[in-house]
Design a protein around this nucleic acid. Structure first.
Length: 345
DNA sequence: AAATGCGCCAACCGCAATGGA
DNA sequence: GTCCATTGCGGTTGGCGCATT
């Protein structure tokens, strides 16, 4: 299995094919057909492995190849087929006579992907991309609509000062007053360079970015009260606490791909804990727990939130920004700034 | 003119599937 | 059922040529 046995023979040629080699292979196949590919090189007098001969024939020497630039029709068909089939290049190639899977794959990777992105279409999902500026504006609004204050250092749970809510050195972003609707934190232990870039992006947009120390009576993340290791240990996500009307997802995964275990009650994972809260919610006993939960059976996720008004500033929950998004922001920071500048002209 | 960067694409590599002994 | 040679596929690489510095 695996690598073709003949490929281990050191005397075999690799790399680009010479016109002489092409001629030998072409002549041999014209006379005898290819038959068993592993015997072709020997019979055709070539110092190549059968696999290489097969590839050369399929991708270049076959007489039914079309060659040349792709037509508009072909281009449209490839996009259509890719939307339906994904990266199944050989299947796509069967619908384009005279084109090879390799040729289509290269055309896709070097040309069509960019073309779709320029049109505002995600080449993977074939759905519209959210406008860069739109997304940027959302963040901008969140920040400028509230007094956002930056904090560095550990964040301790104000109710239990010995409990460190975050071991992350920060910076942390949170509303300076209760009931304001935005707060951010970035887990910089995961992808520091990207996080740093995002922090600087936020910093440059924020109306108030003065550094201030944590006050003892303010907990920016009460919904994380019981999961003191949740935020900093996230390797797959960076939390962005956009406090809207949603619930907190209670099936987060930590570094070791295990469910996050909260500290209350001891050792219980977040999902089973949330299901317990759900039980009380369904029996109209939320007032006893001060919490309520929802389950989305279609995606098998639990969401929960505090019902207590005293747990402000954020009554509700956080949403998740995935690494890929954050990575994307980091990479496109300059582009975004340029676009914002262009639009302001 | 030389160095560097970048896009394109032919070919390679590794893995999975297939089929015959 | 197992082994192994062969074929097929898709991701990746590396070299070439052109553009830019």
């Amino acid at each position: 299995m695996g690598r073709h046995s003949c490929c281990y023979k050191p005397k075999l040629r690799k790399g680009l094919w010479s016109p002489e080699e092409d001629e030998k292979l072409l002549n041999y196949i014209a006379r005898h057909g290819h038959g068993c590919w592993s015997s072709v090189p020997k019979l055709a007098g070539l110092q190549r492995c059968g696999k290489s001969c097969r590839l050369r024939w399929i991708n270049y020497l076959r007489p039914d190849l079309k060659r040349g630039a792709f037509s508009q029709d072909e281009e449209g068909l490839i996009i259509e087929l890719h939307a339906a089939l994904g990266n199944r290049w050989s299947q796509i190639a069967t619908r384009l006579p005279g084109r090879t899977d390799n040729e289509i794959k290269n055309f896709w990777n070097s040309c069509l992907k960019k073309k779709l992105r320029r049109k505002g279409i995600d080449p993977t999902t074939h759905k519209p991309l959210i406008s860069d500026l739109q997304t940027l504006n959302v963040i901008n609004q969140k920040l400028t609509s509230s007094q956002v204050v930056k904090s560095t250092g550990l964040i301790n749970n104000p109710h239990e000062p010995s409990m460190v809510v975050s071991s992350q050195p920060g910076p942390w972003w949170f509303p300076s007053m209760a009931n304001q609707n935005a707060a951010f934190c970035f887990s910089s232990s995961t992808t520091p360079s990207v996080s740093d870039q995002i922090v600087s992006l936020i910093s440059s947009m924020s109306t108030s970015s003065s550094t201030t120390s944590m006050t003892s009576n303010f907990n920016p993340f009460p919904e994380l009260y019981y999961c003191n290791n949740t935020v900093p240990s996230q390797t797959n996500s960076i939390y962005s606490a956009f406090f809207g009307n949603s619930f907190t997802e209670a099936s987060q995964i930590n570094n070791n791909n295990n469910p996050v275990v909260d500290d209350h009650p001891h050792g219980q994972d977040m999902k089973s804990w949330a299901s317990e809260i759900l039980h009380y919610t369904e029996h109209n006993q939320s007032s006893e727990t001060g919490l309520e939960a929802e389950v989305k059976p279609d995606i098998g996720k639990y969401y929960w939130r505090s019902t207590s008004s005293s747990s402000s500033p954020n009554e509700n929950a956080a949403t998740l920004l995935h690494d890929a998004d954050v990575e994307w922001y980091g990479k496109n920071l300059q582009k975004l700034n340029n676009m914002a500048f262009d639009q302001s002209l």
